Computed example of a mutant assay.
Amino acid sequence: MNTHDLAAFIAVVDSGSIVQAANKLHLTQPAVTRRVQGLESLLGVQLLDRQSKPLRPSAAGREVYRKGRQMLEAESELMTSVNPATEPAGELRLGMPPYLADMMLATPVDRLRECFPRLSLRIQSTWSPGLTAAVENDMLDAAVVGFADGSTPPSSLVAHPFSRQPIRIVAAPSLGLPTRTDLKRLSGFSWVLSQNGCGMRSVLRRTMEASNLSFDVTVEAVGSELQLSLVARGAGVGMVTADLLERSSYRDRLKVLQVADFRTDVVGWLAYRPLPPRLEAPVALLLEELKKLPIASRF
């Protein structure tokens, strides 16, 4: 189907006149007539009631008009979506892990909304393995993910590191643990950690299991502040990034342990598949804002 013929028919219906449609399209009247007739010939139906003044669509013409407008709008959106000079619009599906959600939902997301007002943000918060899989499967456009030092996002994704945070093992002084300790001693205590799916919990579990040490998670809790409050009350040993520990209201009630056989950092990455042109500028701005976060100063 020639969309120019469809546009001519829609212009005639909108204006009620071949003359006015021709002026709107900067065509001659015979050219508009030929285009409408060509569409009628293709579809095998009469689209206009030519006895009415102004011109009105026939019953079939009303259906073609309605669906034709949808087709032309879809064509326009398609052309816009691949034009890098067009103002970004539509959806940006963004993922982030829970421990970064508070910071991400502040300045970086506010900047996106300020700079790209026609862009709708759809934000999903879960753990990094799930976010990475969602990006790979085109369920998210981009995701902020954390990987233990030495690991990286899949090679199928474009990934930029923006932060590095040391992991702190913490406990309440009441547990009586020495500052310098090891995983064997810690295996005698229960843990307060995030749910299964948290990358750092997985690293700790694998490390302990590799040494045939028991790994008992007594409390699973969402959010570092809730976890640290439980650790401070002696519910178990905890694990947190250095930045979140510094910001916690419970930091003075916690003892940071130096674990000889478990020292690692978590590296923050912005990961995405090759982007459509309409999302290139928003994702570039997001990366720029992520690098300004306080946690990025340690990278």
Rank of each mutant, 00 (worst) to 15 (best):
A7V: 12
A7N: 15
A7D: 14
A8I: 00
F9L: 05
I10E: 01
I10V: 11
I10C: 07
A11M: 04
A11W: 01
A11R: 02
A11Y: 00
V12K: 00
V13I: 11
V13K: 02
D14P: 04
D14I: 04
D14F: 05
D14W: 06
D14H: 06
S17W: 01
S17V: 04
I18K: 13
V19N: 11
V19C: 02
Q20S: 08
A21Y: 02
A21E: 06
A22M: 06
A22G: 07
N23I: 12
K24L: 14
K24E: 11
K24P: 09
L27R: 08
L27K: 06
T28D: 10
T28S: 13
Q29N: 11
P30S: 03
A31G: 10
A31N: 12
V32Q: 01
V32M: 03
V32N: 04
V32R: 03
T33Q: 14
R34D: 05
R35V: 00
R35E: 00
Q37A: 13
Q37C: 11
G38C: 09
L39C: 11
L39A: 11
L39H: 05
E40S: 09
E40N: 07
S41R: 15
S41H: 12
L42W: 09
L43D: 02
G44C: 08
G44S: 09
V45F: 13
V45D: 12
Q46P: 08
L47D: 05
L47S: 03
L47H: 02
L48S: 06
L48N: 03
L48D: 06
D49F: 07
R50G: 10
Q51R: 15
Q51M: 13
Q51H: 14
S52P: 10
K53G: 08
P54N: 09
P54V: 07
L55F: 05
S58K: 03
A59I: 11
